[in-house]
């Protein structure tokens, strides 16, 4: 019987377990899932001495409160937010020792959307298809955290990093997503393709782990009719019938029938995960890399 566990005191608006996800199963209809802001998840793992594949917690806007049953090292990064242990402020973006039974509070994001909580040993829920990630589209992996739930924690196999505070990029004041056109840009008018990469958009409050939804100019189709279902990639900019582009994030469906006008560069997606509703958004056309 192990007492290595975290008791969820306050689950927050939406807190999920995330790791590197489960790529390689798209042909079975299984989304890749995984942390939306991968570099921040990797950072908290590094700070607490975990391997990159260890599972962390991903919070949404208002953080969460946890009580470890035995002493653990934790680190919080991603969206900047107040962090405290039993009411006393502790550093964000640095390893912090939390005694057994103390209350770790991850507060509301000051900027950005998603904070990541790493814990030494990693969150050790049972993996599904090789991953512990919660997939909100298909329901694979553990359900989102609920108050009172107890999460098992693994054995630490590394030492916490010796840093005071790790440098990390702040959440964007303006989100710029670099896109390469296609594969279905020919389903849209030339004006629509120009509009996408020249006119301002905003991040919609309807955004979630499946897609970043947008508010802004409508993109007009050049073709009517339905596109037969085809495979979808991370970062695909899909345009549903309402004409407002949606950027596919980690829990995106593996196939879809709305045309993809462009694809966002993978390196720009972590910033998309931290773009709060209402933030200005611009799509910038770039050439394809060789």
């Amino acid at each position: 019987m192990t007492d290595r566990a975290l008791v969820v005191v306050r689950a927050g608006a939406l807190t999920t377990v995330q790791d590197l996800g489960r790529p390689g199963h798209a042909h079975l209809g299984v989304p890749r899932s995984g942390a939306l802001d991968g570099p921040s998840a990797a950072l908290v793992n590094r700070l607490v001495g975990n391997r990159p594949e260890a599972a962390v917690l991903e919070t949404t806007l208002d953080g969460c409160d946890l009580r470890p049953r035995s002493a653990v090292t934790v680190a919080v990064a991603g969206a900047p937010c107040p962090v405290s242990v039993d009411g006393r402020a502790v550093p964000w973006g640095a390893p912090v020792r939390v005694p057994a039974g103390a209350r770790l509070s991850v507060g509301r994001a000051v900027l950005g959307v998603r904070a990541y909580v790493g814990v030494s040993g990693g969150v050790a829920v049972d993996p599904v298809l090789g991953s512990r990630s919660t997939d909100l589209l298909s329901g694979l992996g553990p359900p989102p955290l609920a108050d009172g739930v107890v999460l098992p924690v693994g054995r630490p196999d590394g030492s916490p990093a010796r840093v005071d505070v790790a440098a990390q990029p702040g959440p964007p004041a303006e989100l710029v997503l670099r896109v390469t056109p296609g594969p279905r840009d020919d389903w849209f008018t030339a004006a629509a393709v120009r509009t996408l990469v020249s006119r301002p958009y905003r991040v919609s409050s309807a955004s979630n782990r499946i897609g970043l939804r947008t508010e802004g100019p409508v993109l007009e189709r050049a073709r009517v009719g339905e596109l037969p279902s085809e495979g979808m990639v991370l970062g695909a900019v899909q345009v549903p019938p309402d004409g407002r582009p949606v950027v596919f994030l980690a829990d995106h469906p593996t196939t879809g029938g709305y045309p993809v006008i462009a694809v966002v560069r993978a390196e720009d997606l972590p910033a998309a995960a931290q773009a709060a509703p209402g933030i200005p958004l611009r799509f910038a056309a770039v050439g394809r890399r060789r």
């Binding site: 790529p23 042909h27 279902s229 495979g231």
Partner: peptide, 19 residues
């Protein structure tokens, strides 16, 4: 990494040398 068939397409994703 992924070979995803669909109605009249096959998607190859995670390709090191797409060109």
């Amino acid at each position: 990494r992924e070979v995803v068939p669909a109605a009249r397409t096959v998607l190859l994703d995670g390709v090191d040398d797409p060109v």
